[in-house]
């Protein structure tokens, strides 16, 4: 990720922000509930769980936290191979 820290993910501060005027859009979005349309906050929730689930699916070993580091995968696989009775699940939710 290019801007993984707040240092270079340049968020506007109170000193940067221009005056904001709010306009009401009276013709609603036909696809949104009650004509509502979300703007500004693009969902970033999907990719990380999808990647973790793909790894879990490939290895048959569940993971429940991000970031998922190579060390975490190694440690989990080690502990699974030491106790073969431990249940291996088909991915995580």
């Amino acid at each position: 990720m290019q801007n993984g820290q707040m240092t270079n993910y340049i968020m506007p501060t109170s000193a940067d922000l221009p005056p904001i005027r709010v306009y009401f859009e009276e013709l609603g979005n036909v696809h949104g509930a009650f004509g509502a349309k979300g703007i500004g906050e693009l969902p970033m929730d999907g990719p990380a769980p999808a990647i973790v689930n793909a790894i879990a699916d490939a290895l048959g070993t569940p993971f429940d936290s991000i970031p998922l580091l190579p060390e975490d995968i190694f440690q989990t696989m080690e502990s699974c191979s030491q106790s073969p009775e431990a249940p291996l699940t088909q991915g995580v939710r």
């Binding site: 968020m11 109170s14 000193a15 922000l17």
Partner: peptide
Amino acid sequence: EIREALAGNLCRCTGYAQIC
């Protein structure tokens, strides 16, 4: 001066207007 003094505090909800 208020905006300057709060410039070291990031808020990503409000747009700062009500805070100032």
